[in-house]
Design a protein around this nucleic acid. Structure first.
Lengths: 246, 246
DNA sequence: CTTTGATCGTTTGCATGCAACAGAACGTAG
DNA sequence: CTACGTTCTGTTGCATGCAAACGATCAAAG
């Protein structure tokens, strides 16, 4: 409490808030609740997470907390420095590049697999998602579009009918802390429209059962989305250099 | 000791053997040593792994054992049935199909990335591996070829210069328990030669900096290798049906 | 012989205690 | 003022205790 007190997020305030209106139900597994708090930013990157603090927070002993933290370390969300403490991790720029490469590979693979499966419910779901997305773009509702994008990719992955692929994908996305990235990237000028257009090309290829085309289209969509994210980074940096104290 | 005693592998014999000539050094992290034992088959699929047994085996208390087992469950190598016990897991046929699909995706991606990188040391390493593999095939040394195949794929993955890809790949390969599969698959008639030929096509495309060709060649190589594995399965089944007591 | 019920052993889940280590704060010497 | 060594606190790593739950065994009834 003396050393790192200022690094612990929230202390009383955030802590109680998290307990009261936790994003996950009270009886959800400890691991999921903890992960949600890390991904949700309640414990921001760099924050120290002492076992005892979390134990009181979740009203359990240190043992189950400890196990959950080790899992989160395995998932790449936190870093455990032995005998020092557990810290919320933030992916480096290099890691984000790598994760997007991987994302393109996995989503491309999924698109191809889905195209091979033919007329399955997921294809219809993608079409519906496309219509809703178009509507969101027309209305310029970035928030809603971001949510639909998330759904689009989720449908696509589950449409691959490959559970292992899905597991690896979830893992990857957790590391990317995607939600925060995607909301920033669609702020890029014109990105909404081109993103939608790319989605349409993917779905068109899937409908045509063109698995190669679907994979290629999906891969290049992820590339474009990755580029948009890094443009957003660059823009933020430029802005913060203009106002160094911001 | 009463209930499942017969399911616990080895008891005294195997246990001591593992302690004496452990495949990993004594001071290696507990998790790695445990994983090696599971992957090495010392604890075969279905075996019960009581915490207390392992604790005595590794001369630590239950707590670190417990943490390691939870990690192994996360990696998909064991299954923890709450309040019952921890069992060594065996991938189902369906999971093996899925894992091979994923393997093709990741290795194809890696081949493409390596091809884009141009003249890097890994390319030369692949060429050397190819020569050694050709020699092994000429001599009909399946054992040596299997080891070289393993090396080939490892070089390729690390040549992608994508650490995250490599992490996911390692995870995938652990789940596949690949070594046991590959040795069986290359027993298939003619598989050695065609496998080598496929490797050569991959390397040729990489040398030509043809990243699309490299990805396609690698993907189809994995498909062929997967097919060989399932042919080996079918052959084994046919054999065991002929001799049901074998 | 089959089925049902109670009992008992095994194993985990979680709480807690204690020692070891890392790192910050502080005082002291130069 | 700076550099250095000491102390002291926070935090983890591991050991152990205890209760709960699961499942097998065994006995008794139909």
């Amino acid at each position: 409490m003396l050393l790192h007190a200022s690094y612990i997020v929230g202390m009383q305030e955030t802590a109680n808030a998290a307990t009261i209106e936790s994003p996950l139900p009270e009886q959800a597994p400890l691991l999921d609740r903890l992960r949600a708090l890390v991904l949700g930013g309640e414990y921001p990157p760099g924050a120290l997470l002492p076992e005892l603090f979390l134990a009181e927070e979740f009203e359990v002993s240190r043992t189950p907390i400890r196990e959950a933290l080790k899992q989160l370390e395995n998932e790449g969300l936190v870093e455990i420095r032995p005998r020092v403490g557990t810290f919320v991790r933030q992916p480096t720029r290099r890691e984000i590049v790598e994760l997007f490469e991987l994302k393109g590979g996995l989503e491309g693979l999924a698109a191809g697999l889905l195209a091979r499966r033919g007329d399955v419910p997921e294809v219809a779901a993608l079409q519906r998602n496309l219509e809703a997305s178009a509507e969101a773009v027309r209305q310029g509702d970035g928030e809603r579009y971001a949510s639909l994008v998330h759904e689009f990719h989720a449908i696509l992955i589950s449409g691959s009918a490959n559970q292992k692929l899905e597991e690896h994908y979830d893992r990857l996305m957790n590391q990317l802390a995607y939600h925060r990235l995607v909301t920033r990237s669609i702020g890029q000028p014109g990105r909404l429209g081109s993103s939608l257009h790319e989605h349409e090309r993917v779905v068109a290829a899937i409908e045509a059962k063109d698995h190669v085309g679907a994979e290629v289209a999906m891969r290049s969509h992820v590339d474009a989305s990755s580029a948009a994210v890094f443009r957003a980074f660059a823009a933020e940096e430029a802005a913060s250099h203009a106002r160094p104290d911001a």
